[in-house]
Nucleic acid binder design. Structure first.
Lengths: 136, 136
DNA sequence: CGCTAATCGGAACGAATCGGTCCTATTGGA
DNA sequence: TCCAATAGGACCGATTCGTTCCGATTAGCG
């Protein structure tokens, strides 16, 4: 019931990126310095965020990346899912995986969908732009 | 962003216990049979749930346990916290632990308290009695 | 046109936590 | 008084997480 420190770092990095001018060229090195995240870890994170479609990357010397969408259109749920995978409380929530021994007999399972939705909704309600702004 | 299978089992077991008559004497063995949870694991869980004050236990031959509170007064958050520990999204949320390198400089941290509260609220809103009832 | 430098991308290693099993201490009943 | 059944605590293997390192790719410069 806590998110991994990788996801934590990813949120911090994305918030830092959102504070830069919209189309500016960013590098993992710069963000690592600004956020304090170890550089190799920052590189790994940029890779996952790019694979999820949250960052647009460019390779090479003048390369780097930038936010693929505007900050208000990126939610906390997007970032967490990019790093940790789908947000599911229990394994029986997503349709394809069936490894619970109880399966159909489980009385609790029907309720989990609603619980899962509530959690996910709470995370989707938080946009990156709100995280980026400095709070008093 | 998913709860451990131990917590998952605990929820299933508590729901099964809630379906029994209020003051009935229960044993880890019986609940293990009803839920399909391996017996040693069920024993481990009863221990943690009892330590958290959710179950009232009695040792000896005629021993066993029962719900310490009425089912409507036990929330999903209670069960999860009993097994997994405090519900905190990031390590910087709870006051005493300060292991984040950024600390005061972190711009994201002030927002985390609200996020954490939203998640916790979603779990507290689900009572054990609602989980116990059979859904169509 | 070739070389160098800087950056992303993927692969391998070590550490920590989780999940499961076994054993011991305690207590009510025969 | 002895026995049996149960909770409680300790140990061990396994999976995942977190970090680090190395290779692939491309723009800038001589």
């Amino acid at each position: 019931m806590r998110l991994t420190s990788l996801a934590d770092y990813a949120v911090v990095m994305m918030a830092a990126a959102a504070r830069h001018p919209a189309g500016a060229r960013l590098s993992a090195t710069v963000l690592a310095q600004e956020t304090g995240v170890p550089l190799p870890t920052a590189q790994k994170l940029t890779g996952r965020l790019a694979a999820a479609g949250l960052l647009a990357t460019a390779r090479g010397t003048g390369g780097g990346f930038r936010l693929a969408r505007r900050a208000p259109e990126i939610s906390l749920a997007d970032i967490v899912e990019a790093v940790e995978g789908p947000i599911v409380m229990t394994s029986c929530v997503d349709a394809e995986r069936h490894e619970c021994a109880l399966e159909g007999a489980c009385q609790v399972r029907p309720h989990m969908g609603a619980v899962n939705g509530a959690i996910r909704g709470a995370l989707q309600g938080v946009s990156l732009s709100s995280l980026a702004e400095v709070k008093a």
